[in-house]
Nucleic acid binder design. Sequence first.
DNA 1: AATGAATGAGAATTCATTCAT
DNA 2: AATGAATGAATTCTCATTCAT
Lengths: 205, 205, 205, 205
Amino acid sequence: MLFRNFVHTSTVAKPKLDRKTLIQNSLSVFKTKGYNGTSMQDLASANGLLKGSFYHYIESKEALMLEVLQSLKEHYTKRIFVIAYDVKLSAYDRLALLAKKAEEVFMFEEGGDFFVNIGLETKNTVPAFTVVIQEFFAEWLKAMHSIFSAVMDKEEAKVKAEIVVAEIEGSVILMKLLEDPTFLSRTNSKMLAEFKKLETQNVVN
Amino acid sequence: MLFRNFVHTSTVAKPKLDRKTLIQNSLSVFKTKGYNGTSMQDLASANGLLKGSFYHYIESKEALMLEVLQSLKEHYTKRIFVIAYDVKLSAYDRLALLAKKAEEVFMFEEGGDFFVNIGLETKNTVPAFTVVIQEFFAEWLKAMHSIFSAVMDKEEAKVKAEIVVAEIEGSVILMKLLEDPTFLSRTNSKMLAEFKKLETQNVVN
Amino acid sequence: MLFRNFVHTSTVAKPKLDRKTLIQNSLSVFKTKGYNGTSMQDLASANGLLKGSFYHYIESKEALMLEVLQSLKEHYTKRIFVIAYDVKLSAYDRLALLAKKAEEVFMFEEGGDFFVNIGLETKNTVPAFTVVIQEFFAEWLKAMHSIFSAVMDKEEAKVKAEIVVAEIEGSVILMKLLEDPTFLSRTNSKMLAEFKKLETQNVVN
Amino acid sequence: MLFRNFVHTSTVAKPKLDRKTLIQNSLSVFKTKGYNGTSMQDLASANGLLKGSFYHYIESKEALMLEVLQSLKEHYTKRIFVIAYDVKLSAYDRLALLAKKAEEVFMFEEGGDFFVNIGLETKNTVPAFTVVIQEFFAEWLKAMHSIFSAVMDKEEAKVKAEIVVAEIEGSVILMKLLEDPTFLSRTNSKMLAEFKKLETQNVVN
DNA sequence: AATGAATGAGAATTCATTCAT
DNA sequence: AATGAATGAATTCTCATTCAT
């Protein structure tokens, strides 16, 4: 505020629309209305622009969504899935932290299961999205695989990762559709409890 | 000309468009393109009609989708979930048969996870669909609850049903998105194996 | 007027927009504004329709123009170039009649040199039109070839046809651009005079 | 950073955008896409500028085209049509040289018949261009008139000039549309042969 | 000069829906 | 019931032009 006042009145520091903000605003609209349900008008408005002006920033609706998906995938990979490889934490703590973060994301951000939403909606009509969506899940599976490798052999861990991710996704979806938040937290608790048990057995061995 | 007259009055049965066929044809389009992605043109064509004519059968796109959802919910309830209450079968056989049927539906029909697809796509924009979708899952959960009640107490069975349905849904979705059919069959096998174990423990008790 | 009154007042015989009228109306707009200069709005209005309604009749602007070109090519082929093969007329009379008809068309219809206009404007951007335009000129050349074959050998006649068509087209264009109607009529007179001379020489031989 | 500063102040000559280059680049785009088919974006890009920057050089699209036409008209007048008045050459040589130059221009430059293209496309929509286009043809006609005056009387020469220009234009257009280069060269040969004949007759007289 | 952002009108096309026949 | 025509709003995207920096 002080700063704003300080600035010469004739040059109201224009709140530049940086890429990150644009992506976030757009993501927010896509989350609420889906891909086909979102119009360029919606997206432009969400970014405080006129339809025409918005094309100054993006090439097309499809290209924008692709960028949103890629950006979100990188966010998950670098900020959340990376926890799975943190050597400063025990395997259990990695899983616990990952679960906690994921729970936050899925429960408090409207439409946290974005990749599933868009993936299912556009599967047969916009092939361009499929690759990124699959890459997102590959990263998630890899992270889970890494964690579970601490308590079982590689092959078993791969299967376990797949099961666990499926369970979480299923829980998130039912949580959304049935508007019942217990689904996800219970799935996470169960997963952590099982992991602890496996860890103990392993130590014995 | 003669021919035309002949055709007109002849027995070449104009393929009667009964309600069931109409619903099935429409479902098929909605499955492939989603709700917003499907146009009335698409729906009319799928039913061999012109757009204008199609309005003789339906009130609006939204009303049609609602009918499709209701019809599909009833189909599942009466043909599939009913298995859960079949006293002629053992609890295990009920679960096995249910799993088999579900696997058929989800794997061979394009877009088997219709309720999830439409639910996620329209959650924030078409509240009218939410009720039916929730009813569908309520029926599914009830069926699972009934089966698991054979091997555990009511309260536990309720939780178990929720877990199992979440697992199946998660598997179906990953199967679709990752184009890997093993997800669902493995989840079903696991579920059946667990059930058998629970049964045995129970008998022992 | 009498007829209109006679018709039952509640069913004002709807002046159905038949294909021919639609094509003519559209041609008229394209002639005046060119291809890129004409908007769908212009075309719809020229046909007494709203933009949206106009798509009931056509697939796209490009498809419409293609149909206009094809239709016009057929008109020329069947109504004008056909004169060149009329055995009831002498070769000279055929040429004279052809010239007269062409003069009428080019001088009184705004933009008679439609194929040249559209051809030049869209040559590098809409390849779809090129074929029809080339076909039009092929028909014209063929007609001229046929007539000139009466007074010279085939090979010479082919060259002569090309020269004559080029002369006429050049004249039409200069007539338009310089707003001077003498260009075309003089070219036609010259052509006919030359033909007469060739005919005489030929008879002598 | 050092490097950047170096570049900034160094002698790496920013490719100066002088008026002539700007006009040529713009002409090149207009030739390919026509007037309505060319966007300011196209023109700016062709000049290595952003749309916004391009307006530092021009007032509007229409003004630019006008300048292009004027510039081109002057080029023809001063470099090509001027040959017609070169007293160091015989009348025949003037015509031959003129024909050769024209052939080069029309055959090797994409869209050599620029005045016809633009004239026909914008005749009814942008009257501002008409004047320059007519002036171009007036200059051409004057040049031809001058040459033919050497072998026939003024009045005849005027008509002959008109015929010859029409023939050349017609040939150029058919050459373009039918993608057959013989049209123009044949017309030129014919014109030169005729001229020679006229010359001889004249000398005899 | 150059840039990037903004504007608002307008482009082609599609949409769900209605209605006279 | 069926059709084809019509409607008018909405869709994605492009345009020529302007302007603050």
